[in-house]
Lab assay of single mutants.
Amino acid sequence: MDEEYDVIVLGTGLTECILSGIMSVNGKKVLHMDRNPYYGGESSSITPLEELYKRFQLLEGPPESMGRGRDWNVDLIPKFLMANGQLVKMLLYTEVTRYLDFKVVEGSFVYKGGKIYKVPSTETEALASNLMGMFEKRRFRKFLVFVANFDENDPKTFEGVDPQTTSMRDVYRKFDLGQDVIDFTGHALALYRTDDYLDQPCLETVNRIKLYSESLARYGKSPYLYPLYGLGELPQGFARLSAIYGGTYMLNKPVDDIIMENGKVVGVKSEGEVARCKQLICDPSYIPDRVRKAGQVIRIICILSHPIKNTNDANSCQIIIPQNQVNRKSDIYVCMISYAHNVAAQGKYIAIASTTVETTDPEKEVEPALELLEPIDQKFVAISDLYEPIDDGCESQVFCSCSYDATTHFETTCNDIKDIYKRMAGTAFDFENMKRKQNDVFGEAEQ
């Protein structure tokens, strides 16, 4: 370990593993360490099931009705991949897709007046949907046509809207959309967690709705994908990429100290040895004095023996409960997957309800979601602090990732990755940087 590296990475969460992969592909010498004996950090999948019970201090362990412990891979952080989103792009560019198998999530649902409705995925579904009345549908269709044709580089498509100054509230007004449709559009399509976006320039919202539609167009059922064997497969896929390009991995490796000289990182000390480096990437748990708390998320993992009611017996789905429907500031989400994804025993389902904490009784906040899941065989409640770095790391060369937020997709995580890359490399992130180099010394032969 007593060696000189360009970059040392602490923690094998998804953000850290993707950055480690990119740095290795770009010719950097990388050492990647984790104090845990497993990959994934906060974003790991726990197996066998006995391990999950232990982690949540349920000492009696799983009953026999849960089947074989080894058949379970339970995500600690519930997220899906947008089919046309940035993480899929990263997987394709790096060819990490060859280590993973994905399934399309069967449906996306939205909560309205105590019931759940399928988010329409085709024009026919939209016309048949009970989510809105006849005239509302016509106006909504006009709005969707506007979004589909919108091109930020072609003012002819703006229809009198200025993407940089017109607020989204004004765009909704222009198409005369009612409150329910606005809730549905902002939260189930643009996937905002709160209503803060309404008074911001509309460009980002329009682009988010386009991303949803384009992702949906790829597979038809929903815009989301999920990897077989759980999300823990993602960091491992990128760790393989890093290793192929010469990255060194050490799990179960305690970090005793991060060594600084004149305010700059110069190395990491572990078990009496020092590895030197020019730059350091880590998750917040490794540098508690360089991060601040930015809120909390509650996630309740529920094991069920039945599909969720009114989802047409889907073996995977997402449910969004827009905040307006339950008098909150932030949406509540449910991600459900099952034995069909090799993450649970035969006939079992895993539904994870999550939201940003707003009160001193977080469990009560998630109740509307839990009511949709009854009866629940077993619950595991996790309340996590969200951390963000206190500075950009440019001076110390210590670059810290943000905690995983309450969103049900990876777009915010990818933004964090691109942002850290830019601060480390001094140049904007470009997907081309992730391409495997042809015929290089570490390149794998085609399968």
Score class of each variant (00 low, 15 high):
Asn130Cys: 04
Asp405Phe: 00
Arg292Asp: 00
Lys348Val: 13
Leu372Ala: 09
Gln164Lys: 00
His187Arg: 09
Gly21Arg: 04
Phe442Ser: 12
Val161Ile: 10
Gly69Ala: 13
Gly267Asp: 00
Lys264Arg: 12
Asn342Arg: 15
Tyr212Arg: 01
Ile258Arg: 02
Asp257His: 01
Lys103Gly: 13
Ala188Ser: 05
Asp199His: 12
Pro368Ala: 12
Tyr249His: 11
His32Ser: 05
Val343Ala: 09
Lys221Ser: 14
Thr205Gly: 13
Glu152Lys: 10
Asn310Gln: 06
Glu365Arg: 05
Arg218Gly: 05
Ser108Asp: 02
Ala190Gly: 12
Gln346Asp: 04
Thr408Pro: 07
Gly13Trp: 11
Pro163Ser: 06
Leu241Pro: 14
Ala128Thr: 11
Ala190Pro: 01
Ala345Asp: 01
Ser242Asp: 12
Ser20Ala: 11
Ala83Pro: 03
Glu271Leu: 09
Lys437Leu: 12
Gly272Leu: 07
Asp283Ala: 11
Lys329Gly: 10
Glu358Asp: 01
Gln200Tyr: 13
Ala239Leu: 13
Lys269Ser: 12
Arg292His: 08
Thr166Ile: 07
Ala340Gly: 12
Val171Tyr: 14
Val88Phe: 13
Asn310His: 12
Pro322Ser: 07
Pro120Leu: 03
Ala369Lys: 03
Ile300Asn: 06
Ile244Ala: 15
Tyr53Cys: 09
Ala351Arg: 01
Asp416Val: 12
Met66His: 09
Phe143Gly: 02
Arg141Tyr: 08
Glu152Asp: 03
Tyr172Gln: 12
Glu374Lys: 08
Lys278Ser: 13
Met132Leu: 06
Asn439Ser: 10
Ile244Phe: 01
Gly41Ala: 00
Asp199Tyr: 05
Asp34Met: 04
His306Arg: 06
Asp283Leu: 03
Leu251Val: 12
Tyr197Cys: 04
Cys317Asn: 05
Ala353Ser: 02
Glu374Ser: 13
Asp196His: 13
Leu386Lys: 12
Arg240Gly: 02
Val147Gly: 03
Ser215Phe: 03
Tyr117Leu: 01
Gly426Arg: 05
Leu241Trp: 01
Ile182Ala: 14
Thr356Asn: 01
Gly11Val: 01
Gly11Ala: 05
Thr248Leu: 11
Gly114Ser: 07
Phe410His: 15
Val9Ile: 01
Tyr212Glu: 15
Tyr99Asp: 08
Arg218Leu: 09
Leu91Thr: 13
Gly69Tyr: 08
Cys17Pro: 01
Phe429Gly: 12
Ile258Phe: 09
Leu386Phe: 06
Phe56Val: 13
Gly21Asp: 06
Ser316Asn: 10
Ile281Asp: 15
Glu388Lys: 06
Ala428Tyr: 14
Thr359Tyr: 04
Leu76Ala: 15
Ser65Trp: 12
Ile259Pro: 02
Gly160Lys: 12
Asp6Met: 02
Ser384Ile: 06
Asn26Gly: 02
